[in-house]
């Protein structure tokens, strides 16, 4: 018997192919290495120093002494181990590559669409590029980060990904939105 496991994405079968991208677009990342880093007691500053975002990975605020680290360089299987080594005794690292789904919402109306479910002020002055927050989007919790003037990443628990995409479609009802899987 051959054991070659194919990973299934939480949104497989829920997102159809699209002919073209619309003005606003929701891109679902198929694979992403994700880890949660919890600074050891009293070691937040040390862990933060090591977690400065670079080309390899990006550390996003997820709570006091907690970071959501994403990487497209490292594989889901190796990111957590890699971070553990680098952080040494300063933090605990937990793989969440399968526990979270990453969506990128971009377009001129991105902030306006999100304002239909998220209470945080998304004006560029108040929520600049790189700022991250754990927010409530209607009924769902997610980690939101501004990745550009007109683009945001939404990181949501896997089991809620379908519900979030359904919600985003309704939130974007008055705005031209397309949804598909990211090409890379």
């Amino acid at each position: 018997m051959a054991y070659d496991y194919q990973a299934v994405h939480a949104l497989d079968g829920m997102i159809g192919a699209i002919a073209e991208r619309r003005a606003n677009h929701l891109s679902v990342h198929r694979t992403m290495a994700i880890a949660m880093v919890l600074a050891g007691p009293g070691q937040t500053a040390e862990a933060a120093g090591i977690l400065v975002s670079n080309g390899e990975f990006e550390a996003r605020f997820s709570g006091p002494g907690e970071w959501l680290v994403l990487s497209q360089v490292h594989a889901p299987e190796t990111l957590a181990a890699e971070l553990s080594v680098r952080l040494g005794g300063f933090a605990f690292v937990v793989d969440q590559s399968h526990g979270r789904v990453v969506l990128t919402l971009s377009g001129p109306d991105a902030a306006r669409i999100l304002a239909n479910g998220i209470a945080v002020d998304l004006h560029a002055d108040a929520f600049p590029v790189g700022r991250a927050a754990n927010v409530l989007c209607n009924h769902l919790s997610l980690n939101l980060v501004r990745t550009g003037d007109q683009s945001f990443d939404l990181v949501v628990m896997r089991s809620f990904a379908g519900a979030l995409v359904d919600d985003l479609k309704v939130m974007a009802r008055s705005h031209d939105l397309s949804v598909d899987f990211a090409t890379r």
């Binding site: 299934v8 939480a10 497989d12 079968g13 399968h98 239909n116 209607n138 009924h139 769902l140 896997r158 089991s159 809620f160 379908g162 519900a163 979030l164 359904d166 919600d167 309704v170 939130m171």
Partner: peptide, 18 residues
């Protein structure tokens, strides 16, 4: 608002749903 019908409460799907 939009919290009606299927949006009144989010559906949670198990990884073994399929």
């Amino acid at each position: 608002g939009t919290s009606v019908d299927g949006h009144a409460m989010p559906i949670r799907r198990s990884p073994l749903h399929g």
